[in-house]
Amino acid sequence: MRPTMKRLMLIAATAGAVLSAGSAFAIDTIRVGFTIPAEESKYWMMKRPERFPDIGKTYNIEWTQFQGTSPMTQALAAGAVDCATQGVLSLANGAVNGGLKAYIVAQHVYEKPGGFSVYWAVKDDSPIKTVADLKGKTVGISVLGGGTYGPFAMILRKAGVDPEKDIKLVETGFAVSEDALRQGRVDAVNMNQPFAARAEAKGGIHKLFSLSEAMPNIVHILEACRADFVDKNPALAKAYVRDITHGMEMALADRAETLKVVNEVLKAPIPVLDTYLLKDNDFGRDPKAAPNFDAIQLMLDIYAETGMLPKLSVRQFYNPNVVAPIE
């Protein structure tokens, strides 16, 4: 009995020592939400963590993938994640309807002048030649009431088409938009990359109008962190934003490796990604992932003008100490 007892005590003491040593060396973990596609800096952090001096050493990241930005707004509001990808509209909706207090800490993609802009396409043999011709037609949009609706509605109104009364608006995800258009289920539909590049390569469709006609520099997705998390953990939040800055720099500097990284996350074949990713026909990326607050304010104004949101100031999402670029 005695040797057994001694052995048990030794095991308990060893386990205690290991556990206490573990807690002494425990590093902070940040819970991050992401989605696909177009978050290259985060994909680098996820798939090439060894290229970031702090990841795994001064802090860890717990990644969770979400289906779009709206569930991430809910997760941020509920405190289920600390930082997540957001659209301008989803973040603003969270602030207005869900009491979400968050800071915009970085930007992923935007519509740079001359680059890719989300557009509405029609078939080459379609009788629709101008925006005004959309009256009475069935028009596809990726998400009803989503971020693209504001500028879309503005363009239609300018052409004398009431987006609520004059057209039949149907939800058509980007992945199925080409099929829906070619089969005649919709008369016009919005296109995004990589589906636009694929459809253009096949031919038979053309651009009717693009969002950049309503406003330049549209910010499609950005990175937001809960204000209470940032205020309580400024060093951790800064380390995370520093890595997003660094990740964006690496993504833009090494396109060949970025193609591999994106392929690992999206599982989309590299030849498909190669048709657009980080090329002129892709969205724009700020070289240091810096948010364009002026462009975001303009978007908030458009959403207010189209009745989607009350008037909001982007200042409520701004924290000068925790925002990209952080070197």
Binding site: I36, P37, Q65, Q67, A175, V176, F195, R198, L266, K267
Partner: peptide, 10 residues
């Protein structure tokens, strides 16, 4: 795998 592939049209 399923929903990622769906998002990417695979």
């Amino acid at each position: 795998i399923l929903f990622n592939a769906l998002d990417m049209g695979q």
